[in-house]
């Protein structure tokens, strides 16, 4: 009899706790506030790796909604002002923010498959540096929400020095190859763009049509002074024993985060 009473009591307490949690959860969901939202597990590993864009955009929707001003305070019209890289054929449409350029514009939708967590790997309200007492978050970069090494994959210099046969940057040598990247790349580094944030087939199609599209990412928007060290590929099998100095320290596989 005592056992049965204890069991009933246990079940009652468990139900009470469960209902309390549900109520607390509901309350939290209905009235999210900034401070508690910062501690949402979605901002931390491992939850952030499985976060859906819809979950991120539930709070951060403004990143895809906000557009640049139609004109600057001094009267410079957005529609009439283009940067050097925006005069290329690969640039289309009106001025947009970088988030929209990577996720929702027509070119972005055609060539890319970026998700929020492709770039954003979480933060920690307690600390902005990894390896300290207050955080277990890894790869935090001071003052940044994203590790710039990810940006470097498409915004690095055109690495002509490691490409046999090229004597200068692409704009200088393009005419020698009739402006066609595929002249060499039907032989070299044929396994490419197999990353989960790129639309491989569409990129290949765009590249075949016009090499300026290739240059659009591979040098044509080089914000950084260095090139991204792309992984070594099995082309070395075609040239047994050939391992150039520049390739010695390079990995042979991309991090799983970009391939799975």
């Amino acid at each position: 009899m005592k056992c049965r009473s204890a069991l009933i009591l246990c079940i009652y307490v468990a139900l009470l706790l469960l209902s309390g949690n549900i109520v607390a959860g509901n309350t939290e969901d209905k009235t999210p506030d900034y401070l508690s939202a910062r501690w949402n597990p979605l901002h931390f590993k491992p939850a952030i790796d499985y976060a859906l864009d819809a979950q991120c955009l539930g709070c951060h929707q403004e990143v895809l909604q906000r557009k640049p001003l139609s004109q600057s305070p001094a009267g410079i019209k957005s529609s009439e002002s283009l940067a050097w890289y925006q005069k290329d054929e690969t640039y289309q449409g009106e001025q947009e923010t970088f988030h929209r350029r990577h996720m929702v514009t027509s070119t972005a939708k055609r060539l890319m498959k970026f998700k929020c967590n492709t770039c954003h790997q979480g933060h920690d309200p307690k600390d902005e540096a990894s390896g300290t007492t207050d955080t277990t978050q890894k790869d935090l970069v001071l003052r940044k929400a994203v590790n710039p090494d990810i940006c470097l994959m498409c915004h690095g210099k055109f690495d002509y020095k490691v490409m046999a046969g090229l004597t200068g940057d692409w704009p200088e040598v393009a005419d020698t190859f009739n402006g066609d990247c595929v002249t060499c790349h039907k032989e070299f580094r044929t396994k490419r763009h197999k990353l989960n944030f790129l639309n491989e087939q569409e990129i290949e199609k765009a590249g075949e049509k016009d090499s300026n599209t290739c240059y659009g990412c591979h040098g044509g928007r080089a914000w950084y002074a260095i090139a991204y060290p792309y992984v070594r590929r099995p082309w070395l099998k075609r040239m047994p024993g050939a391992l150039p100095e520049w390739a010695k320290d390079r990995p042979t596989e991309y991090t799983k985060r970009f391939t799975k």
Partner: peptide
């Protein structure tokens, strides 16, 4: 006064 607030520079700077 020439800025249109596209925030590209903010994203590109590695040091925030």
């Amino acid at each position: 006064t020439l800025c249109i607030g596209c925030r590209r520079c903010e994203a590109a700077c590695p040091y925030g």
